[in-house]
Amino acid sequence: MAHKIMIVDDAMYIRAVLKKALEGFAGNLSVLEASTGKEAVALFEQEKPDLVLMDITMPEMDGITATATICASNPGAKIVICSALGQQQMVIDAVNAGAKDYITKPFQPDQVLEIVKRNLAA
């Protein structure tokens, strides 16, 4: 069965880097992309992905608000925050919003794969 993963980041560069990292995943994956929190909320409701890789600093709606919005109507949603913001307070806010994991940019492809595998298996 193919896993559906949604990448949410306003930076085209990061979306490309994450897609490239996911090419190392052993199983079947289909990848969806959104570039704002608002787009992510709409696409999640439409596609119900198995896992979301979510940036925080984005136009229209930030990733923490998008995470909270998605988790309010989908309590089992698996969302991993991928952000350059490394403050403890931001990690706490992300977890309180419903995020399952947090990875700080810049990241290595192996880190991304490990975190994706762990959360898909959970």
């Binding site: 930076a11 136009p59 913001l85 403050q87 700080t104 940019k105």
Partner: peptide, 26 residues
């Protein structure tokens, strides 16, 4: 643009360690 985002975002952790909690814009 992402390079600037990563440098500034990571720097906010250092600012937080000094007691200055802050956020950044895209």
């Amino acid at each position: 643009a992402e390079l600037a985002n990563m440098i500034t975002g990571n720097a906010t952790a250092g600012l937080e360690a000094n007691g200055f909690v802050c956020d950044i814009t895209p």
